[in-house]
Nucleic acid binder design. Structure first.
Lengths: 110, 110
DNA sequence: TCCATATATCAAGAATTATTGATATGTGAG
DNA sequence: CTCACATATCAATAATTCTTGATATATGGA
């Protein structure tokens, strides 16, 4: 992950409709959801959601697989992991006692 | 962390000058850096950087302390931790075997 | 082939955000 | 008090991004 990629991912997530879509897909797990269901669930128009899913995909945060007439989207764990790693990279300038609590306190609710 | 707070933090980080400033402060550790030095280091104008630091601060990603005539800024670990936690909240819909690798693979270089 | 469904693309206007020069505020020194 | 330095605020323009209606593409079924 480099700065342009991180900016692309952060910009993608910095709009409410896209943040909601991404989080919905995170909650949906590996199965993902078809585009139409994402739009319906979040109360968005079809073409707006299509554009937003495309932006999330180009940012590497979600992936898609065609399934008949639908296209199913999935959260891309590698993508979000890359972003999180980039944000905490070189944290605390090499002082582990300041840095260690950063990640260990993020509770993964699974 | 709720959605408005997360959007505020993500928007703050989604611009190159601010992302660079935030990462510089992460690398600087608890000591932080004075505003002027941040602007000089990153080649930004004084008032632009002042605005950007203000945006990062309102987003809860950095803090400031006055030090004589200067104002010293510091990364706010609680802030970034809150954002990271929000992004992976409820990941994988409760399937730990998919979710666990997410955080454990973020190498903290300290 | 023709139709219906699902999703994507396009173009234009609306809204938001960034940048800049000018100026204001706050602090310490003399 | 006045000056110099450090940072913040303001207002206007520039640039970017969002939304929307219309339309295009892709797939499967009859």
């Amino acid at each position: 992950m480099d700065t342009p990629d991180a900016l692309s991912a952060l910009s993608a997530l910095s709009q409410e409709a896209r943040l909601n879509a991404f989080r919905l897909l995170m909650r949906a797990g590996p199965t993902g959801l078809p585009a139409g269901e994402i739009a319906t669930t979040l109360g968005a128009r079809q073409n707006t959601m299509s554009t937003n899913l495309s932006i999330l995909q180009h940012a590497g945060l979600i992936t898609s697989t065609r399934e008949g007439r639908s296209i199913r989207y999935h959260a891309n764990l590698d993508g979000i992991r890359g972003l999180l790693g980039f944000l905490v990279e070189d944290c605390c300038g090499g002082q582990p006692e300041q840095c260690q609590p950063l990640l260990s306190q993020i509770a993964c609710p699974c």
